[in-house]
């Protein structure tokens, strides 16, 4: 349902959407039910001629059922949500498939900088490719990212990946993603980081290995000039 409004481009986007949908359906069901009961009771027990108002303490067994039964059902729903959420959390955050590529992502006021491995395929070597506001990745490739912040708290978000990870000064946080379709999509900062917070958009370019190779060669040629 959610993918009708925003694409699912990472391998785990559908899992997260499924969880959000599950929570939405459960909460929505209870919301509608409670509102129907609430307004139904208001109308049913509105002031009537000859009927005296009374204060109900809710201590009678047949009255307490109105609280007790929904309470137990909601707890049951909570357990379902927790089980589903933990499964997704373990899949997305706790388990990292082996990296095929690694990139460094650096947040600062108010831009995103990226370090891509050069032709040697390794980070922190002389042929690294550094870009600002453009992250290039290969489709169908497991990427590990090393996320850093140069100044204050930021948060790296790629909405089509359903990926969001805080960046904290002094820490290097590792995460992963695998894009399953080519395209160009938004990167956002989703942690208030100063006056330019809303003005630091970047893009992720998901390319075929051939396109990525062409881009990488062009960057290497520019760097060698």
């Amino acid at each position: 349902m959610i993918e009708r409004y925003i694409e699912q481009v990472s391998t785990y986007a559908s899992d997260i959407d499924g969880l959000i949908t599950l929570i939405g359906v459960i909460v929505g069901f209870w919301f509608v039910l409670v509102e129907v009961v609430f307004f139904g009771l208001i109308v049913a027990f509105r002031e009537k001629k000859g009927v005296k108002a009374q204060y109900i303490t809710g201590e009678e067994k047949h009255q307490k059922r109105w609280i007790g039964i929904p309470h137990e059902l909601v707890l049951l729903c909570d357990i379902v949500i927790i089980i589903a959420a933990v499964r997704v959390w373990v899949n997305v955050k706790q388990t990292q498939p082996p990296a095929q590529e690694t990139v460094r992502i650096i947040a600062q006021q108010w831009a995103w900088s990226f370090v891509h491995p050069g032709p040697d395929g390794k980070l922190d070597t002389a042929d690294d490719i550094k870009t600002v506001d453009e992250l290039h990745v290969k489709v169908n490739t497991v990427y590990h990212f090393k996320l850093e912040a140069r100044d204050v708290l930021h948060s790296f978000s790629v909405p089509v990946f359903r990926l969001k990870q805080d960046a904290i000064p002094g820490r290097v946080i590792t995460g992963w993603f695998k894009a399953k379709r080519t395209g160009v999509h938004d990167i956002q900062c989703v942690e208030i980081c100063g006056i330019g917070h809303g003005l630091m958009p970047a893009r992720i370019l998901i390319q075929t290995p051939e396109e990525y190779g062409t881009w990488q060669a062009a960057q290497a040629a520019t760097a060698s000039k």
């Binding site: 600062q108 108010w110 831009a111 870009t131 600002v132 506001d133 330019g196 003005l199």
Partner: peptide, 19 residues
């Protein structure tokens, strides 16, 4: 301006101009 990897203050200014 403000698009070089090491231009930290330039990167602070760039979004302001973009606004």
């Amino acid at each position: 301006r403000g698009m070089h990897f090491d231009d930290l203050s330039g990167m602070q200014m760039r979004p302001m101009a973009m606004s």
